[in-house]
Amino acid sequence: MINLSWQAPASLAIILFALGLIGLITRRNLIFVILSIEVMLNAVALLFIVAGMRWGHPDGQVMFIFILNLAGGELALGLVLLLRLRARITTLDGDSANILRES
């Protein structure tokens, strides 16, 4: 019987989440913004796996599947929006996509 602490994998998930958040906030290229969001979703999914492990229950993996589901939908729409935005602006700079603002 192997005993495994759950803190270490949880910390790994948190570190990955933080990396994704840093990427989300600092990067201006919209491809990287979406990539960072994927990283963050992945980290959260990992955290659910850890929780499932901790309690020995399949719900963690069920939630993992739901997050995959969500990530898939989010990614598809996000990338399509990126393509549409490409037609409007000449760069992929997220900061220049503020043309909805009146002044």
Binding site: L24, I25, V33, G94, D95, A97
Partner: peptide, 14 residues
Amino acid sequence: SQIGQLRRYAGMLA
């Protein structure tokens, strides 16, 4: 405060 900058919105969300 509504400057249309995605990163600031993300930071606020965080």
